[in-house]
Design a binder for these strands. Structure first.
Length: 620
DNA sequence: TACTGCGGGTTTG
DNA sequence: CAAACCCGCAGTA
């Protein structure tokens, strides 16, 4: 057996400057493509390891160092339960899905419920049927099982060798990420579900700095019981956020939404229509890769020495650099009026900690926009993202509620840097009509302090490739990120966005396998387009999904508006668009509208659901 | 009380 | 036969 661990190391500056994008593994992590299988009789010895991926998703193979605590614990953000595969050498786990509200309630803030199922069967049974944490909802908790692997739960395999810990995942989670394990544990330590209910509402309404307090206990315990564990966690903090989710199908070549396997429920209306899409897209959303300042390779002697001040800053930025922060940005704004005093922190726990996902998740990726750090000259720009510096410029609640009502008045094509304006329509297919085009303004790398945001954003907003056999990640040195700052002059408050774009620096769609060509159309992620309302709400729009869009910086593109109301109320709306025309993605879509639908659907996955990474980041 | 790993056993395709 | 699944047990926190 020829074993080649394809390394995709970048030199540090390169990784800082160019490397982050959706669909690619962390630049400092080795490729998720490996010429080994967990079931191989002989597993190669390796010395280069992947960074820890808490939310590993899709078909992937990862190698962790033998001293990786998370790997040793076979940890995962997903709720994975042990499954007996009658192989003492390989530990197999299957996903339990996520606990959802039976009514799929959406809080005024836009939050939804996504609790972590208990691993223990008995405890899990007790969870089900309990009242929804949303006090104003009369629904009950129910399990949405994972069917991400051809109709069966996603499975994780762990295999230990003397020199490494091998991890292999099969399937693509078709549901929301559950709350982070640390959050679940913390909540449990808090007490009964009744408390949860109350907490949930409090937190959802208020602050995002929640779990910092919520997990104090946990942290204490960890620190006490684990010696230098704490320090390790600070390292982990970065690494966990580096989680990169994209799918590299080595076994099943089905598309995540239109699995061509026999059992895929996604090809037909499933029992959980209201959430299937939301969940899938959420699940497919990569954990955030942020903050290269803390990036490090996993070597045999992994260590961390972040200063407290660094950590503070790190956490501070991280809250905004992660999609979770984005999800809650409006909540943060509310919090702005109050200094984050300890009491406030105690009272205000983020919805994330209690299993809420803020906002219509499909569109939550849109929230990344306010996070874009502008050049320092724009006081009128990016007020939202500067909550740490000043009071918010907009009312979050307004933005959230308005989100459901209107389509964007301003749309930024993240791929081309073109800004489109419209009077605002509420249609899901009004793409392009009436939009004005603004030429992108190229601002090269802004202040270094924003680097992590840049990367974060890039990863968030570039769709990842998924479910394609053999995904190649190619870097083209010497090219730079392009930052596009848009200042809307006519409607100053309507939109100010800057978005880091990888212009021609990444070949997202290089296919290593000829077999992937048939699914190119479905796999390609086009330009991410974000619409921002005057009130701060935003819609999410996908590009046309063609490769040309990736590098084309100023072309007019096709796009469609993903109407959150459709996403929430009609699970099949975009699904139909996605699957209906392409035979489950198994055939190439040549029709432009199909491209649009496919791309839009894929882009739909771009949500700011990485609440857990964010939570943990805050914690640690 | 819950998590985790283990392993016997059953069901299903 | 492989894979998924159920169940109980033991150790641990």
């Amino acid at each position: 057996m020829v074993v080649v661990f394809k390394q995709e190391y970048e030199n540090q500056s390169m990784s800082n400057e160019y490397s982050y994008s959706r669909g690619r593994p962390p630049a400092e992590s080795i490729s998720r493509i490996a010429d080994w299988d967990i079931n191989d009789s002989i597993i190669p010895r390796v010395s280069n390891f992947n960074l820890w991926e808490e939310w590993a998703d899709g078909h992937c193979r990862l190698v962790y160092p033998p001293n990786c605590e998370e790997a040793k614990r076979h940890a995962s953000g997903w709720a994975m339960r042990n499954t007996n595969n009658h192989n003492v050498h390989i530990l197999k786990k299957s996903c339990l899905g996520v606990l959802l509200c039976s009514r799929r309630c959406v809080l005024p803030s836009g939050d939804t419920v996504h609790l972590r199922p208990a691993i223990c069967d008995k405890a899990r049974k007790k969870q089900q049927g309990k009242p929804c944490p949303n006090r104003q909802c009369h629904g009950h908790l129910e399990i949405m099982p994972c069917r991400g692997h051809c109709g069966y739960p996603v499975t994780h395999f762990w295999r230990h060798t003397e020199y490494a810990i091998f991890f292999q995942a099969k399937g693509v989670h078709d549901h929301l990420r559950p709350e982070a394990k640390s959050t679940s544990e913390a909540r449990r330590s808090f007490g009964t579900s009744r408390k949860i209910r109350n907490f949930g509402m409090i937190l959802t309404r208020d602050v995002p700095f929640n779990n910092k307090v919520l997990n104090l206990k946990n942290q204490k315990q960890k620190a006490i019981s684990n010696g230098n564990r704490k320090q390790y966690l600070s390292t982990q903090l970065t690494q966990e956020l580096i989680t990169e989710n994209r799918n590299i199908n080595s076994g099943c070549s089905c598309l995540p939404y239109c699995c061509v396997c026999n059992n895929s429920r996604l090809t037909a209306p499933g029992p959980e229509p209201a959430t299937a899409m939301l969940q899938h897209q959420q699940a497919s959303y990569p954990a955030q890769h942020h903050h290269h300042h803390h990036h490090r390779h996993y070597q045999h002697n992994t260590s961390s020495s972040s200063s407290s001040s660094e950590d503070d800053q790190h956490q501070h930025h991280q809250a905004w650099a992660t999609s979770a922060g984005l999800q809650n940005y409006h909540v943060l704004q509310q919090l702005q009026s109050e200094p984050p005093s300890s009491s406030a922190i105690v009272q205000n726990m983020p919805s994330a900690d209690f299993g809420f996902v803020t906002g219509p998740q499909p569109a939550s990726a849109v929230y990344c926009q306010p996070m874009q750090q502008p050049t320092t000259d724009g006081d009128d720009v990016f007020q939202l993202q500067r909550i740490d510096l000043r009071p918010p410029g907009q009312d979050a609640a307004t933005a959230s509620s308005a989100y459901h009502k209107c389509s964007p008045t301003t749309v930024l094509d993240l791929g081309s840097g073109t800004i489109h304006k419209s009077p605002g329509q509420c249609s899901g297919d009004n793409g392009g009509v009436g939009w004005q085009h603004y030429q992108p303004v190229d601002y090269h790398h802004p202040a270094a302090v924003h680097h992590h945001h840049d990367h974060q954003q890039q990863q968030q907003c570039f769709q990842t490739q998924q479910s394609c056999d053999g995904v190649g990640y190619h870097h083209h040195p010497g090219q730079q990120l392009q930052y596009t700052t848009i200042k809307t002059e006519e409607v100053p408050e309507s939109l100010d966005l800057m978005y880091p774009m990888a212009v021609q620096d990444v070949d997202y769609y290089a296919q290593l396998s000829s077999s992937s060509s048939s699914v190119d159309a479905a796999c390609h992620k086009g330009n991410a387009v974000v619409g921002v309302h005057n009130d701060g709400s935003m819609d999410f729009i996908g590009g046309d999904g063609t490769m040309a869009d990736i590098s084309a910086s100023q072309q007019v593109i096709d796009y469609m508006v993903l109407d959150p109301t459709k996403l929430l109320s009609n699970n099949n709306f975009y699904m139909d668009a996605y699957c209906g025309s392409g035979s489950g993605g198994a055939e190439t879509n040549n029709n432009d509208s199909d491209h649009t639908a496919v791309a839009a659907f894929n882009e739909f996955q771009l949500n700011a659901a990485d609440i857990h990474s964010w939570s943990q980041a805050i914690n640690q």
